[in-house]
């Protein structure tokens, strides 16, 4: 199972890649494996204000649907449209092409509260 060391993680299996005041968000390799074949993704609207741990996206397999929570509060500034037409990309490349959205976060403190790669490994 792949858990890149340079990312921050949430207990609910989302990862974030911080760059300035923006964070890219996706689901972990562990999560995509558990969900199995992803067939559909719903993404938040651009511009939407979100609170930490609020469900903002949905990932669906044939027989189940999972809420995806934003790890950070702020504004959705960009979404990855590619996963809408090719949802399997989330299975194939959860940390790169299969990311979900970018959030412009407000509170640096929330970043500190996220898990490190080692902590996340212990969790799963």
């Amino acid at each position: 199972m792949n858990v890149p060391g340079d990312l921050k993680y949430a207990k609910t299996h989302e990862w974030t890649r911080i760059s300035g005041n923006k964070a890219k968000v996706g689901i972990t390799d562990f999560a995509q494996h558990e969900i199995t074949d992803i067939v559909h993704v719903e993404l938040p609207e651009i511009g939407k204000q979100v609170r930490r741990e609020q469900p903002v996206a949905v990932i669906e397999s044939v027989k189940s649907a999972f809420d995806i929570y934003t790890p950070l509060s702020g504004k959705i500034v960009e979404v990855n449209d590619i996963v809408l037409s090719t949802p399997e990309i989330v299975n194939k490349s959860p940390y790169e092409e299969g990311y979900l959205f970018t959030v412009e976060f407000e509170n640096e403190k929330e970043v500190e509260n996220l898990l490190s790669a080692d902590d996340y490994k212990k969790l799963v």
């Binding site: 669906e60 397999s61 044939v62 189940s64 649907a65």
Partner: peptide
């Protein structure tokens, strides 16, 4: 197909 819209999977959602 597209069953994750339905009650037996999504329940209250």
């Amino acid at each position: 197909t597209l069953q994750s819209r339905e009650q037996h999977i999504r329940r209250e959602k």
